[in-house]
Structures are given as C-alpha cells and as structure tokens.
Design a protein around this nucleic acid. Structure first.
Lengths: 218, 218, 218, 218
DNA sequence: AATGAATGAGCCTTCATTCAT
DNA sequence: GATGAATGAAGGCTCATTCAT
C-alpha cells in the first residue's frame, strides 16, 4: 500500500554537495550507458548511491537533466584524456599513425563513453543543444589534425587537398565503429576481429589505410 | 473514459494473420527505430495500427518478441536490396569504388535500419542470438568482396594480404558512422559535411581512401 | 524502498464494470466534496473502495476525469430529486412558497452537492465546460418558475415584469448560502440561525420575502 | 540545476520583518484565493515574493498558518471599507436600499475576498476558530441594520418582527451568491444576468425584494 | 484463433517541511 | 533573528502484461 521509496543511506558525507553530485553522476553514467535514457531507472541509480531519489531532482531537476549532466561530464572527461598525447616534432605520417592508434585505443578503453554517444545519437543529439562549451573542446581535436596536415602538405607527403575535418571524421568512424558496432558485427561475422591480437592488426590496418588515403603520390 | 488501452479500429481485413502481423511490424519498426526498445510504447505502436494491443501479445509474445521480429525483418529487407548491385566483370578498383559508393548511398537511404542496428548494439546484440538465417545473408556481403579482392590480388593491383573481412569492416565503419553519428558529429563540428554536395565529396573521399588502403605499391 | 501502492481487495464483483465505476464514484464524491479537487487523494479514495488505483485511471483517465464524472453525476442526481415536486394546480403564491421551501429543504438535505458546486466555482466552472446535457436538466428548473410566474401575472397577483430567471437566481442564492456559508456565518454571528427550529423560521422568512418581492401591489 | 526550491531575490528591504510579512501575505492571498488551501503552492507564492520559502515558515509556521494569516487579514481589510458608507439620517427604506446596493457592489468589487470565504467554508470554517477580534468587526454590520430596522419599525414602515440578523443573512446570501456562484450559474443558465447592465437591474431587483420583504402592510 | 477487460508493479515527480548554522 | 541546503513522504500516472472467454 503506502508507497514510500526512500532508501536508507549512510549520512557520512552530507554537506558536501559536489561529492554528492559526483557520486550520483558516476552511477548515473553507468546506468544510462547501460540502459539508455528511457531504459535507465532513477530508483536503480539511487540505490547504488549514497544519496536519495529526492537529491537527484534537487541537483539535476529531472531525469533528462541528470542525463544531460552525465553526457556533458562524459564529453569533458574524454577530451582531457585526449590531450595526453604529444605529437609535436613527429614527422606527419608518423604523427598520423600515432594519432589513429591512440584514438583507436582510447575508444576501446572508453566503451561507456561510446555507448553514451551512440545513445545520444538515437536521441538525435537533442540533449547536446545547450552544451555551449563543447565546441571549444572539440576544436582541439581538429587543430591537432590541422597541424599534422599542414606539415604533411608542406613536406610534400600529404595530398594538398586533404581535409583535416574529413580526416577526423574518418578516424572517428573507424574507431567508433570498432567499439559501438562490435556486437552486431560479431553476431554477423564472428568474433575473429575482436581478439586482442586481431585488434592490434585491425588497428594497424586502419592506420595504414588512413595514411595511404592522404599520401601524395607522384 | 476508458483509457486508451483499447482502441477502435476498422476490422476490414480481419482474418488475415499475416497481414495483421505485417501491419504491426511496419509500425513497430518505425517506433523502435525512433525511440529504442525501452523508449518505444506498445500503446503508441498499436494506435497507428489497424490491430489491437492484445494482438501484439498474441502474435509476438511480448515487447521483446516484437522487437526481435522487427530486427529480423529489417535485416532481411536490407540484404535483398543489396543484391541489386552487379559488379561482375568490372576491374577490381572500379568494383571496389562502386561497392563503397553503393554502400554509402545505401546506408544513407536506410537510416531507420541503421538506427535499429545502433539500438541493437546498445543492447549488446542480445536479441540477435537466435536469428539463425542471418549468417547466410551476411555471407553474401563477404563473398562479393572476396571476389573483388581475389581478382585485385591476381591482377597485382591489390596487396596480397588484403582481408575481405577487414575491408568489409572498414566500409561498414565509414558508411555506418556517416548515418549513425551524424547528430553528435554535427553538434560538435557543424553541418558542413552533411549537405548533399559535401556528402558526395565525402563519399568520394572515403572510396578513395579505402582503395588506396588496399592498393599494391611497387 | 520499492514503492508499490497496490491494495488488497476482495474480488467479489469483478466483471461488473458499472458497479465498479459506481463504487469508485460514490467514494470519490465524498472525498472531493470533503477535500476539493486538489485536496482529495486518489489513494484515499481507493482505499475505501473495492477497486484499485489503477482502475480509477482505467475508467476515468485521470484525477480530473474522475472529478468531472463526480460532478456530472452529482448534477444528474440532484435534478432527478427535484422533479419529485408537483405544483400543478396550486395558486401561484402558494406554488412559489412551496417551491422555495422545497428548494430550501432540498439544499439542506444535500450539503455534499452544495460543497461540490462551491468547489467547482472555486475552479471557475472550468470542469463543466463539456457537460453538454446539463442545459436540459436546468431548463426544467426555469420552466417550473415560468409556469408559476405566467399564472401569477395572468391572475394579477404577480408584477407583470417578474423574471423567472431572476427569481430562480434569488431562490438559489438564499438556499445555497444557507448551506454553503453556514460555517463562516456561524463563526461571525453565532449558531442561532441554524437550529432546526430557527431554520424553519428562516425558511418561512425567505419564502415570504421572495413572495413579497414578486407580488403586484395596487 | 538546483531545482526551484531556492530563489534569487533582491534583498533591498531586508531587515524589515513587517514589510516582508506583508509582501508574503499579499501574494499568498492571491494564490490561496485562486487555488484554495491545498491547491496553492508555497513555491509559487514565494516565487512572486521578494522573500524565500524559508521565511514563510519562519514567520508563519506552516502553510496553514500562512493561510490563517491571509484569512484574518482579509476579514480585517473588508470591514474597513464597509465603514465608508454613511446612512445616518436617511429614511429606513432608503437606507436599506442603499445598504443592499452598497453591499452588492462591495461584494462584486472584492471577488478575491468572496473566494477566500467560500474556500474557508469548504474547510468548514475550521481556520477561523481562533480569530478572536472577528466578533467585534461583525457586530458593526448588525448594528447598522439594527438602527435601520428600529427606525423602520418605529416609523411603521417595517414589520415589527423584522430580524436584523436574518435581514443581514438575506443581504449576504444574495450578494455573496452573485459573486461566488457566478461560474456554475453561468454554465447552467447563460451569462445574461452578468453583463454590467443586467447586474444593475439585478441589484435593483434584489434591493426591492428585500425591502418588500420587511415592509409593513396594512 | 481471437479479443475486450482488467491489473500488478513501479515510474518520475512534487509537496511541505526540517536541518544546521 | 535569519537563512541556504537538504529531505521524508507521498502523489498522480504509465507500463507491459494477463485474465477470462
């Protein structure tokens, strides 16, 4: 009868809003990545949290607000990691190879993020509408490629008409697909491309393909 | 009164189970593609149908059964269209170019299918487990590439170590990403790659990249 | 934790939708009359019912739908009772006296209805918008007065300019106020007008006032 | 983020408890009059205020305390205005006519107060229990009528058995009903009695009725 | 084979209020 | 005295599904 969906929880860290929010976000991220926006259950998120359902609404407004916060945080987190890569001074072909391989590994290491992006695409990117500071974060990715391309063209090893944006698009496509479509691909064509060994080869293969795709030929 | 659980519908074609099922499937496909498995509402599917909620359960068991049927039907439909392409007798580079371009266009023309596949990947391909005749359908895709590669290698224009499976993987990655990730990509980097004009260039670009990726060099 | 607000209930009369609806309506009427639209709790209504929360929504759509049904039913019920009065053949002054006294008693006997009307007025009559068959029911009330007035005028005992509608308005005002405003009037001026004895006098007083108000004077 | 529980507000007049309370009361009165006790939302009241939710509880204890304060203030405000009328020296019939017309207009001009009283009646006058100084205020209303009646009887134009209290009751009934039941009356019988023109006639009609009701006849 | 009626379980959200300084 | 942060308790509503014929 009486529906009371409160939950007992330790009051150990009360009075630290940021910690509470972070706690919620961490769990929410996992749940949204696992079940999608409509599939995730606030109750289930909260049960794995030191917080309460009420707090979710207090801090994030509603379910979509929480989802949006998760998405934003996910993007922010990803970009930070990307900046770890240092390609300065490398010859352009080498740099591109390294960038592709790094991206490939990076995507593989962050399947949860990939899932969130896939989910957000199902929602037609609707929830990214007002994530203003996203553009800045993404510009960095393009700038890296702009540098590589400029050098490559200047050195005469890249075609003069290579487009950093398209190149980024191609790298993303390959690396994203590898994680995001793994399951259906596996069901259709077997698991042979997804052993650790095979992934190394696959990575080499796509790195090579992308390099050959931009290489200037006499 | 009487909430929308029940609905009036014209009983014109009653007594034709297959037609009823097909009617349901058509609508269900759209709804699942639009909202995902958990996001789709049986109620909403049924409202756009000449059938009733009860019939959905009668014919498909439960929501997942319906989703599974939609997915299976979607895969079946897709493969039929693919067989329209005739590459026999074309030189391998030309054939590959044509195949890539065809696949690119094909994916673009079937965003609903792409969404269904993306959704199924969110669910880790869990619902394709028992789609037995899928393997056969997919084999065709690989066989086309095997022929092209075999010829290309024999003629000395493709690297001898090209893998038809990896090549298929790469083609799929590019073409799938173009449709599936369009929304987040757009939010991050603008729409410039998605005008009809730009898509033509992009298609050319990835076709070239993939060809250069397999080409044997002296 | 888990919020489950189901309730156990005897399944004795399942399969009789009208009985179930009537059961709900009866209780809902009491609860709405007691606490108003926003003050009433579906849970509390349902607890006094042989039915479940789910059934309320099934039969009435939402809380407002239930409220609307209660209101409509209340109006219908009232009008039926009113038709019990037979004034045919009575001299007009006598008829009017009887009508006023009957209405006075009738209102006193139906405080729940009066409360519902008062509540609906707080809502600015918003929920009566689509109660189409209400007009017909009300016409009867006016017709009775039209007959009385016509006779009274013809016989030269009523002023020729009496308005049946205004007369109805005046009767309603007095009889409604007696029930609806009893509480604040009592707080302000004591209970002396509300003993059974005093109510009889009051009834006589207002009947006389209304008769004198229409009487033609030489 | 941070749901709307807290609100920014200009702190211009902080440190003036009475002003803060008055500010809250003004808004609360409107909200309670509009939505009733249970229908009004503290949140919504506070949003239109220069104050905070916390202050409401600080100054008024709880929602009911605020409501009570609103009600008390409303009664106080009304009586002040009533004292504007000066009937001294007028012949009793004239005085009564004037009083009725004044009351009619006065009620029409204060629909918010009328609604508050109607609402309080829905609550069975429960919140007026401890409004001690109310009695004094109301006595004035009766006293006016006592004077009129006394004169009327003395002059032989009023029946010797007229009751000032019942007369007050009748005046209130008519004038209150006109404002409070306007909505349901309109839904049932159309708007014809509520145009400015018709209201003037109606006012004349009830004034006459009430005068005829007390007039001594040979 | 086919279907209208009914429903258990749980969802997201909101409310007035108290905690802690 | 004054207030920002936090919250217990429930509230209305919706979901896929089963009952009963």
């Amino acid at each position: 009868m009486k529906d009371t969906d409160q939950q007992v929880r330790s009051r150990s860290w009360k009075q630290d809003p940021e910690a509470v929010k972070a706690d919620i976000l961490t769990v929410a991220r996992e749940e949204f990545a696992e079940h999608g926006l409509s599939g995730a259950r606030i109750q289930q998120i909260v049960e794995r949290t030191k917080s309460s359902k009420r707090m979710v609404f207090y801090y994030f407004g509603d379910k979509e607000g929480l989802y949006r916060a998760v998405l934003e945080e996910a993007y922010r987190g990803i970009r930070w990691q990307e900046s770890e890569l240092d390609l300065d001074g490398l010859p352009p072909v080498e740099a591109l190879l390294r960038l592709v391989e790094f991206t490939f590994d990076h995507h593989r290491a962050n399947p949860e993020f990939i899932r969130l992006v896939a989910i957000e695409n199902i929602h037609r990117g609707r929830h990214m509408a007002d994530m203003s500071d996203l553009a800045d974060l993404n510009r960095a990715a393009i700038e890296t490629l702009e540098t590589i391309c400029a050098t490559g063209i200047a050195e005469g090893v890249f075609r003069p008409d290579v487009s950093p944006l398209i190149l980024h698009w191609q790298i993303s496509a390959m690396c994203f697909f590898n994680v995001a479509n793994r399951h259906t691909f596996t069901r259709n064509f077997g698991t042979e491309l997804f052993s650790d060994e095979a992934q190394k080869d696959l990575r080499a293969s796509i790195a090579r393909t992308l390099v050959e795709g931009v290489r200037l030929r006499p």
